[in-house]
């Protein structure tokens, strides 16, 4: 798309607006050609990725999001880490971690923690499935699919599962000198969850999703 947009269009002979696309990052106008699957269209000015359709992307996103949801449930309820010290075993699950701030002055953080590690990722996965599933099957978009997808995109920076995993690694080292630590099944579920999330985001091309939604929506 971008390669044949070298010549900026003249002000006077602008084509139909639907044939144009403005770079979401820098507002540069381009002719909106179909991008072949597997190729990446970048902005001629700021080189931001505009569109990157991938083979079976919708189906893959749904499957990965569903996998992520299941892993999340496992991660919440199984013990996360076990600490063996002084003849005692202290188990903690994700739920306990969220509740760590629930006493005293730090109570508001409990809500934030629950949102960042559990609630927002779950909302994001469900809304992605809701938006993508009808499209992968070739149906018309679900009701309010546009709002759901906009919400999913807005939540993206706030779903911090992968940041949490690095936090666990740091905590492990900090405690390692103090007591013997064992990693519970939920930890591995969470690691898998992070991998799945990263894979899923790689298949995602926002502009492509919007275009597909528009095409499928009967007007």
């Amino acid at each position: 798309m971008m390669q044949d947009a070298q010549q900026p269009p003249k002000l006077t002979d602008l084509p139909d607006l639907a044939q144009l696309i403005a770079c979401p990052q820098c507002d540069a106008l381009h002719f909106d050609a179909d991008v072949p699957t597997g190729e990446t269209a970048r902005c001629i000015r700021c080189h931001a990725v505009i569109e990157a359709p991938r083979q079976l992307a919708m189906t893959r996103i749904i499957m990965l999001a569903a996998a992520a949801l299941i892993l999340m449930i496992a991660a919440i309820f199984f013990p996360f880490l076990e600490l063996h010290a002084a003849g005692r075993i202290q188990r903690s699950s994700l739920l306990d971690t969220v509740m760590a701030f629930s006493t005293g002055m730090t109570a508001p953080l409990t809500l934030a923690m629950a949102a960042l590690i559990v609630v927002l990722p779950i909302i994001r996965f469900t809304s992605l499935i809701y938006v993508m599933a009808p499209m992968a099957f070739g149906w018309q978009p679900a009701r309010h699919a546009e709002s759901a997808f906009r919400m999913a995109e807005a939540l993206r920076p706030w779903a911090m599962a992968e940041v949490f995993i690095v936090g666990v690694a740091v905590a492990l080292v900090k405690v390692a000198g103090l007591a013997h630590l064992a990693i519970g099944p939920a930890f591995w579920a969470f690691v898998a969850l992070v991998i799945v999330t990263v894979l899923k985001d790689n298949f995602m091309s926002r502009v492509t999703v919007w275009k597909t939604l528009e095409q499928r929506r009967p007007s």
Partner: peptide, 28 residues
């Protein structure tokens, strides 16, 4: 930006994990 949250998560994990009464306990 979001990666700065690491330390908050570390504190939460430590606080839940290290609750060994007299021997050692960590509060946020």
């Amino acid at each position: 930006g979001r990666w700065s949250m690491i330390d908050v998560f570390v504190v939460a994990i430590l606080a839940t994990l290290v609750q060994l009464d007299f021997a050692a306990s960590i509060k946020p």
